[in-house]
Amino acid sequence: MKKIINSPENLVAEMCEGIAKAHPSLEFLPKYKIVKRKEINKNKVTLISGGGSGHEPAHAGFVGIGMLDAAVCGDVFASPSSVQVYNAIKATASDKGTLLIVKNYSGDCMNFDTAKEDAADDGLTVDSVYVNDDIAVKDSLYTIGRRGVAGTVFVHKIAGAAAEQGKSLAEVKAVAIKAISNVRSIGFALTSCTVPAKGTPTFEISGGDMEYGVGIHGEPGIARQPLETADKLAEKMTKALIADLKISSSAEIAVMVNGFGATPLQELYLFYNSVTKFLPTDIKVYKVFVGNYMTSIDMVGASLTFFKLDEELKKLLDEKSVTAAFK
C-alpha cells in the first residue's frame, strides 16, 4: 500500500482538518468529526448527511449554501456513531427543524435513527429520508433494500435548494423523497479499493476481469465478468437505468458519470460520450455532471446515474449552490 498519510488512525480527522482549512466557510468539530457551515441559518431547515469516510468529496464537499449544513464523518466505510450524529443535530439545530439524508445501509440507518430518537427526546424536530438509488441490488421484502450511492448527491442538491428557499421541513422532506424516487444508479469496478487500516485490496481481481454492479465500499458486485468496452458497458447500463426508472419518451433527465476515485477524467468523459450513443433521441438531457462525486477511495471504476426531472426538480437543480465539490 502506498498512501499519502501519516497514520491510518488519524486519516479521517486530518482530512477533515484539511477540508475546513481549505474552505474557510466551513468548520470542523474534531470531537464528533462533524464538518459544518460556520454560520447556521436558524430560519431554514438544516440538512445533515454523512456516513463512512472514503467517499470524498462526499459528504463534506457538499456542505455549503444551497446544499448541506453538516456532514458527519465516520471511519473509512463505517457509519458514524449515533452520538456523532446526535451532536451534529444539536450543532445545527434550527427553528424550522432538521432533515437527515441517510444512505440506505444497515449501519447508517441504525445510527441515524437512534440519533433522531435521542434528539426528539430533547425536543428537537428531526426527520429523515433514505436514499436507495443503486439498481444493482435486488429490492425485495427480504432484504434491507437497495443501497444509496452517487444519486445521493442529487438529493442533497434538491433538498438543499428547497431548504434555502425557506420551505418547511415537511415540504423539504417531500421534495427530497420525490428526488429519491426519480434517481437511479449502477456502477462497475476494474479494481478493488484499499482501505488504509487494512493495507491490502478488499477483493482480488485478475487483469482481464471486472465487477459489474459494485457498491462504493469494495463490497463485491452482482457479477464478475470479462472486461468490456466503454460502448458495451454504456449500452447495458443506460438500458437498465431507463427500464428501472420507466423513462418515457420526451422525458428530461440529468446525468451523472461518477468516478470511483482512481478513474482518469478522460475515461469518464469518454464513457459519457458512449452513454449518449445509447440514449433514445426523444429523451432530453437537461444537465450533465462528469467527475468524482461519490468515490470508493482508490477504486478504478465508475457509476452512471439518471435523474428524471419535472419542472419543480429542474428549477431546484438550477438554484445556486456554493460548496467545495458541487456547483
Binding site: G52, D75, A78, S79, S81, S82, V83, S106, G107
Partner: peptide, 12 residues
C-alpha cells in the same frame, strides 16, 4: 461500545 464501534457494530 455503542459510541466507539464503527458502522453497524456500534448499535448491534
Amino acid at each position: 461500545i455503542a459510541e466507539n464501534c464503527g458502522g453497524a457494530s456500534g448499535p448491534i
